[in-house]
Nucleic acid binder design. Structure first.
Lengths: 131, 131
DNA sequence: GTGTTTGCAAACAATTTGCAGAATT
DNA sequence: AATTCTGCAAATTGTTTGCAAACAC
């Protein structure tokens, strides 16, 4: 798709920002945050770079509710928790003693590359507010 | 949200159609299919009913790629396979020996209601075409 | 009769894209 | 010098919503 990948201040900043966060920001959140350091950065550039980084496997794109995509600089497989009340996305500690991929029936004829696990419910804050 | 749920020919048809399918149709697919039986059905009605059925737990909404939502009349938890090449969504047989929810760390303070498992890669057709 | 559902079209939100100029190699 | 990247604005895509009429209970 892309021949080479030249560096750019914008992409560097996007990646660096993502690495400092554990809350899996959306494109909009990245855009807002970066405006402090790069005031005239454009939303299109943020989207373009996030897509590009995700395509190259440098970051992870996470779609949980079919609305906004979230991004994660940690690319090793790990489970997430999605709050259906406030829409936040968090890492969740839930170490499985087995690899889910190993349980796929041998009858499956495609090629499996990944397994995404997303827990959902209400986060701590929302659970308290609901009660 | 809704007080009562009156019946309608459109909603009946949508649910009936979904029950005949194992390929987790999108709203667009449901719309196209139903036009044969209800020629003047509108896309808005399809979306409205799918959302309503999903909210009431009668069907399942599945978001895999952040683009199109898929719908499933089987509401008991089961894993899916999403093809990153053609975008199709299938059921996949991969019975886990334990419930993933039981491995969530007790330190997690929210409320877990569900766990979604989506395998991804290339489906049988796309795997053949790629080779 | 009251309240829900419909078709239609317009509105919306998230994301992508075309372009001319700026930046990187 | 060649090519990728940017900001901007317009375009696209998937979905939701407001409305008056039609329908279900």
């Amino acid at each position: 798709m892309h021949t080479t990948m030249k560096r750019s201040r914008q992409r560097d900043a996007i990646l660096t920002y993502l690495c400092t966060r554990t809350d899996h920001p959306t494109a909009e959140m990245v855009y807002t945050a970066l405006q402090e350091t790069i005031p005239n950065i454009s939303l299109g550039t943020v989207y373009r770079n996030l897509s590009q980084l995700a395509e190259n496997g440098i970051i992870l794109r996470i779609s949980c509710d079919g609305k906004v995509d979230h991004f994660d600089a940690t690319t090793t497989p790990h489970p997430h928790f999605f709050c259906t009340s406030c829409g936040c996305l968090e890492d969740i500690c839930a170490p499985l003693p087995y690899d889910p991929i190993s349980f796929v029936s041998p009858e499956f004829k495609g090629t499996i590359k990944d397994c995404t696990i997303i827990y959902s419910g209400t986060c701590e804050k929302c659970s308290i507010n609901e009660a």
